[in-house]
Amino acid sequence: MNRTRRASVLAAAGVVSALVVTGCSSGEPDQAGGSASSEGLVVGYDSYFVGNTWSAQLEAEFLSATERESADIADVIVTQSENDAQTQISNVQSMIARGVDVIIVTPISPEGIVPALEQAAAADIEVILSASGAETDTYTSYINVDDTDFGATGAQWLVDTLGGEGRIVALNGIAGVPTSDLRYEGAQAVFEAAPGIEVVSVIDGGWDQATAKTSVESLLAADPDIDGVWSQGGSMTLGAIEAFEAAGVPLVPMTGEDSNGLLKKWSSLIAEGGTGFDAIAVAKPTWISAEALETAIAAARGEQVTKDNLLEPEVITSENLDEFVRDDLPDSLWVNTRMTDEEVVALFG
């Protein structure tokens, strides 16, 4: 497979590094519709963000999948948007100009990306939306967990666990990012239907452990009477736990995601017993990007693919925690993965 200037392969694990650069083919693909099918597909992938471990693993899952699907791929072009919507639009337009056969993209701005998607459709390029949607139906397939349902699932567990009564903190991701906004929208609907629940503070934690810890520490210093934490990110939940422990405030039920660091901490708290802590981890799998690649290949072959493939969020509770926690792998791992253990170690160290 011709992959000039493609991201390097990690020799120890056989996985393509998450620290990628824009790839290019040594030959020039056709400018309308990509390279000839006999030579394999030219795949364009925009990495919307690698600023946290989930988004880094999303990209790594895609790159790992390109190795598994290498028989169908002639070249892979990877761009970085660094969570900037205008950069992403330019990246997609560049892929169109280079004549890729398929584009896989995680829209940063659901509205802003629309003209670029329409340009791709006009060039007969298959477009797969991965992990985030767009305000248009001009795409081949959209693959995601329903983020509204994601937020509501954790919120309903928290309301039920608290018996419908309590003062809670909400930890969001990044304001304006669709994933964050939709998750909190789902949670809000649940909280508003539970009159005994009071949301005393809403914090933008950036899906970052240190940011969440600092913010929750400040909150607890002023108001330690907190009964529960709704968090839409595993790293933020871990930061919240650390903040409660540092403040000497008894732990409370918290929601989170399937990050291995959180699961390890959760497992250790269960072993200690009597902490007052319980949790649910709602999973949005990083293998969505691998599924997007498989869908893109199928669509390019002319196969029928699902237009809107919205997956049910999987949940981890104290009852099935032991099936998912990996004490032998790094904390940074998101456990619902298709990557091998060797690839995970190579990615996260």
Rank of each mutant, 00 (worst) to 15 (best):
A85D: 05
V105T: 12
F62G: 06
L58S: 05
S81D: 10
Q88D: 06
V78C: 10
S55D: 03
A56D: 12
Y48H: 05
A71F: 14
G51K: 00
D75T: 13
L117G: 12
S90R: 06
D101G: 15
F62S: 05
S94D: 11
S70I: 08
A85K: 01
Y48N: 01
Q119Y: 10
G99N: 10
E59T: 15
L58W: 10
F62Y: 13
V76S: 12
L58Y: 13
A122I: 04
L63M: 11
Q57N: 09
I77P: 06
A85L: 01
P115N: 09
I96G: 11
D75F: 13
I89V: 15
I89H: 00
I104M: 13
T106I: 02
S109E: 08
A71G: 15
D101R: 08
S64M: 07
E61S: 14
S55H: 07
I96N: 07
D46G: 02
I73Y: 13
A71V: 12
Y48M: 01
V76W: 07
L63P: 10
F49R: 01
G51V: 02
T87H: 04
A122R: 14
A122H: 14
I103Q: 03
E111W: 05
I113D: 06
V114L: 06
E118K: 07
T106G: 06
N83R: 02
V92S: 03
N91H: 09
S47Q: 01
V92C: 09
A122V: 06
F62C: 07
Y48K: 00
Q57K: 03
L58P: 12
I77Y: 11
A122T: 15
L58G: 05
A56G: 11
G99C: 11
T79V: 09
T79E: 09
S70K: 15
N83T: 00
A65Y: 03
Q88E: 13
S64K: 04
I104T: 07
